[in-house]
Design a protein around this nucleic acid. Structure first.
Lengths: 138, 138
DNA sequence: TAATTGAGTTATAATGACTACAAAGATATA
DNA sequence: TATATCTTTGTAGTCATTATAACTCAATTA
């Protein structure tokens, strides 16, 4: 099953010129909704693309960010994490294992941008933290 | 005006054994509600404490974190920032100058912790971003 | 008081994420 | 096909943070 065509069109929607590497990265993001880090993306793609450079993954994600195709999460202190789902949703990070999960179904007013005379606010990020069940049990 | 006594008692409330360095760092945090970075704290205290080591500032803030005396903010991708105000409030970061401001007066339900069968959620951080007035004008 | 112990501090080195840069490769245009 | 431009790549560099080991000093004990 070849999803390259779909991913190709997806990139063009954001005015991103497709290349083999860009298509592979975006394809990975579309299929792995796990808020991956640069290193996770690189490690996943590297076996099937041995010449891939980690710098390219950095460049590609920075380009996706500029074009608004992905969102950078600041929930993880260690690494930048990326999310292709730019709809209104929150995140949860497990302080033990470090995994990041989506939180859907919150009240819409939580995502409202407040008026403030001192700033122009144009986005909000909501980060919950605690312990996931898997870590709790162990 | 000597505030060391007050700060001294403040540390003891969190079961932190006071030392000259710890008192100085906590005193700085209490008087400068600017969500400072490690480097900002070190640079501010260094002139009056020439032997102060940056490692000590790192150690001290990590101790304060463990003891719950300060909160670490994840809003800034570049550096860790620290806040002694652990009450329910949000933050705003200006994407141009990088300064972090407090946002008070939000509806209480924004800070409510949702129930979720998969996680035990014990805190929330709300991070707005955009441009501050000063950067907008320039 | 003197010796001892251990917490706290310090400086240096090491780690790791991210960026800068320049060369090599691929793609588009004439 | 030739040329110009974009993209990728590897290396080197930067910077925040942590690890480590030596040192300082205050509290404790004899």
């Amino acid at each position: 099953m070849n999803s390259t065509l779909h991913t190709h069109r997806y990139l063009l929607q954001y005015a991103i010129k497709p290349s083999v590497q860009r298509t592979a990265v975006m394809d990975y993001l579309l299929k792995n909704r796990t808020h991956p880090t640069i290193d996770e993306i690189y490690t996943a793609l590297s076996p099937s693309m041995p010449t891939l450079s980690k710098t390219t993954v950095y460049n590609t994600l920075n380009l996706f960010l500029e074009k608004g195709a992905v969102q950078a999460l600041v929930i993880d202190e260690k690494n930048a994490r990326y999310d292709i789902d730019t709809s209104a949703h929150a995140h949860f990070i497990c302080k033990k294992c470090g995994k990041v999960y989506d939180i859907f179904g919150l009240k819409p007013e939580v995502f409202e941008l407040p008026q403030n005379p001192n700033f122009t606010i144009d986005s909000v990020e909501i980060a919950y933290s605690g312990t996931c069940n898997a870590c709790k049990e162990s």
